[in-house]
Design a protein around this nucleic acid. Structure first.
Lengths: 218, 218
DNA sequence: GCATGGAGTTATAACTTCTAACGAACGCAC
DNA sequence: GTGCGTTCGTTAGAAGTTATAACTCCATGC
């Protein structure tokens, strides 16, 4: 749609089939989780024999890594788009929750249980820091900075002295803390909700989430 | 050691072998995560052939469910013991983190990525609410209650109206909120740390965790 | 028109979980 | 002490899985 007038028919077909494989893979993951993903089953669904898929992905791990990459890319794009539309931290929080609820297993592919041996390739960690960057942008205090509450002073000074994760972003200590809290607190509430740990407890997870959002810009 | 003078030798042997199977299973999970657990590999490690294990566990799921149960039991005991020793909410927080860091995959077996179809048996959810009960005990405000901050008033009133998860526990609205925040915020910081999402960022996860602990009794 | 390369096939190896059928050993009752 | 029955562990095998190798066949590019 964008570049690619120089695509050969073969490349078009190849890209299309890769996309369809990934589409089926997402369906399987949504239905049975990442460990339940079966290359064989995908191939049969598409009407071809198992080993055919190895023309398109070197192995199972490469397919999953590709899905993780796409998930990260999609989240980063979603966050960036929301931020470009003028969303503040709370707005990004709502965007994040909607994105997660849309496909919980996609969220868990990024933030779920890690596989002990696995290390994500560099380009994926680059996307992760791109998300962090967008959070830092939105976490910048708007009004003239009130003096930091005593409760968070210690954390903010620690972050100010250990800010390599912010790269060259000119975030204030308060922004560093807010971005980090955005990440950890929203993940805490969201992942427990997505995992079903709140079902049957009676309260509305959205209320808890909103409460966390209110605290963020505090 | 406790009861069981009436154990037959066969029962002793059986219980011992079940324990050893679970021990090996934990090692495998620590090394490769729950999806990497192989009954066959365990059997070979123990010097017997694959199908022999089916004398002790009906299938792979039953073994994993048993491990989840033991993990929950262990966490509940750890929390309860700490609470009995007079630990406050912050103390329980430290206990939780130490327990999680001791075996991250064990933590993720409880609070990690859910398997879409899976529903935990009732006795496991009973242990979960036992943990919740201990948190509610420790979350009760000590001093004369200051009026709830405006930021949390809405959540506290919502929780006060939807408190079936507290059962018949006489927790105040503030205690309900604190126990819930203990759970979600500590899980947020802890699970991201355990999953390695903080590695290379430069800051000390313990500082973030301590900050969250300070906010709990706020 | 034809050679090349990519796509999909089958066959096969090495795994996995799990069932079935068999033999042997163990322990309890007599 | 001597059976006898339960339980344990075995091998064999079915039905899956990932992944490789070898082969066919068709389309593309020259």
């Amino acid at each position: 749609m964008t570049a690619a007038a120089k695509e050969t028919p073969r490349e078009r077909y190849r890209a299309q089939l890769r996309a369809e494989i990934k589409e089926r893979a997402w369906e399987q993951i949504a239905a049975a989780g990442a460990p339940g993903l079966s290359l064989n089953a995908i191939a049969k669904q598409m009407g071809m024999s198992g080993p055919a898929l190895y023309r398109y992905f070197a192995n199972r791990d490469e397919l999953i890594t590709e899905l993780i990459r796409d998930a990260y890319r999609g989240l980063a794009d979603t966050i960036r788009t929301a931020a470009a539309s003028g969303a503040d931290l709370a707005g990004l929080g709502h965007t994040l929750r909607a994105w997660a609820l849309d496909d919980p297993q996609r969220y868990f592919l990024i933030y779920g249980t890690p596989v002990p041996g696995y290390h994500a390739p560099d380009d994926i960690t680059a996307i992760a820091s791109e998300i962090m960057h967008a959070l830092l942008d939105a976490a910048q205090p708007t009004a003239a900075s009130t003096p930091p509450a005593a409760e968070v002073a210690r954390l903010e000074s620690h972050l100010a002295e250990h800010r390599q994760w912010a790269g060259d972003h000119p975030a204030s200590p308060t922004a560093l803390r807010r971005a980090l809290h955005f990440w950890t607190r929203l993940h805490g509430a969201l992942s427990l909700e997505l995992a079903g740990h709140f079902t049957g407890m009676g309260f509305d997870p959205a209320e808890l989430y909103e409460n966390e959002l209110r605290h963020l810009t505090q």
